[in-house]
Simulated assay, not measured.
Amino acid sequence: MQNYDEIIKKELYNTKYGRLFVGDSVELSKSYLCRYYKNKFNLIITSPPFPLNNKKRYGNLQGNEYYEWFIKLAPIFSSLLTDDGSLVIEIGNAWEQGRPVQSLLHLECLLGLVKNQHADLRLIQEFVCYNPSRLPSPAQWVTINRIRTVDSYTHVWWIAKSDFPKADNTKVLRPYSKKMLRLIDKKKFNAGKRPSEHKISQKAFAKNNGGSIAHNLFELETLDPSREVRLPHNVLSFSNSISNDYYLKRCRSDNISPHPARMHSGLVNFFIEFLTRENDLVLDPFAGSNTTGYCAEKLKRKWISIEADSGYAHNSIIRFEEPSFDSKLKVSTHLGGDSVRKQT
């Protein structure tokens, strides 16, 4: 087991609220986090490497090797979470090698994670993140043979150690529709029993609660152009490819390759505000460009992020150099500072 001094040498930078380490997340979790942060994290939110057929630079295992690696995360995550803490994992679909058949691997991983006998975890709710700006994939079957449709969504699994993890959906309300605002204003609607046997009271739509309850489908772009996207205020209604993001602008201007599998900042904001409070502790063990740390910092949550690729870790410093963002960034000189940022 690595000692404390060796671990600290892996810290690339720290801010007012958080720290980013460069290294293997499983190794660092076992040797450092499980020792000093056992049962301390209120939220673990991450997008681990997907089980893709083609190897990516950011690293990804395949098949049974991926499954075995994934389910071994269960006891680690369980030991790090508070009793009312949550684990949120975003993961995409996988396809069988050389076949137009969707793999069951991601579902097997979910079942293996929550059924791991060394971790007391359960699936609280599944969310779907729809993003029509994703490139057509799998390309062989979508754009070449044209026998499949575009894979345009990812799964987001909300998992916890308790049936009742800390959560408050009033913190992530959607804006009311124009129709609903009219109902609230007029206080006149068709009350009574519906064909579904639900009973609508006379006061059901009379009170303005500040917004409607969020759905478990995130439209990063509208499904129907004729209506307005009503995402919670803290979920930004644009896709990850939009060019007005400071991180992407800096990557272009500095000739840096951005991380190819960034988590959507609006998605991270949603779960941080839904499942935590100010000064709670958030972990992202597969940080990538450190969207989680950036969002947690803005929302005044304490955070720890881990990224195995030193280049992507160094590039994530850009997020905390945003002019309007007073992050009190301190970069460790012993890990090379700006000198190892990866160029295109």
Rank of each mutant, 00 (worst) to 15 (best):
Q2M: 15
I8W: 08
E11Y: 02
N14K: 08
N14I: 01
G18P: 02
S25F: 03
V26Y: 10
S29D: 11
C34I: 11
F41D: 07
I45K: 03
N53H: 04
N54K: 13
K55Y: 04
N60C: 00
Q62D: 06
G63T: 05
G63A: 10
L73H: 05
L73S: 05
A74E: 02
S79E: 11
S86T: 09
I91D: 03
G92S: 09
G92P: 03
A94F: 02
A94S: 12
A94M: 01
W95V: 08
G98P: 00
V101N: 06
Q102S: 05
S103R: 05
L105F: 03
L107F: 14
L107N: 12
E108W: 14
N116A: 00
L121R: 10
R122G: 12
V128T: 10
S133A: 15
L135R: 14
P136I: 00
T143G: 04
I144V: 14
S152W: 04
V156H: 04
I159E: 00
A160F: 06
K161P: 06
D163V: 15
P165I: 03
K166F: 14
A167W: 12
D168Q: 08
V172R: 03
Y176Q: 08
Y176V: 07
K178A: 13
I184W: 04
K187S: 08
K193A: 14
P195Q: 09
S196Q: 07
E197H: 13
K199M: 09
L217M: 04
P225L: 13
R227Y: 12
L231Q: 04
L231H: 04
H233C: 12
S239C: 13
D245N: 06
K249I: 14
R250D: 03
C251Y: 07
D254S: 14
P258K: 08
A261T: 15
R262G: 10
S265R: 10
G266Q: 06
V268E: 03
V268Q: 03
I272W: 03
F274I: 11
F274T: 11
T276S: 09
E278G: 06
P285S: 09
P285T: 06
A296E: 00
K302T: 04
I306Y: 01
I306D: 04
A308H: 03
S310R: 07
A313G: 00
H314G: 06
S316A: 05
S316M: 11
R319H: 09
R319F: 10
F320E: 00
E322V: 12
K328Q: 15
K330N: 01
T333M: 08
H334L: 06
G336F: 01
G336H: 08
S339T: 09
S339M: 05
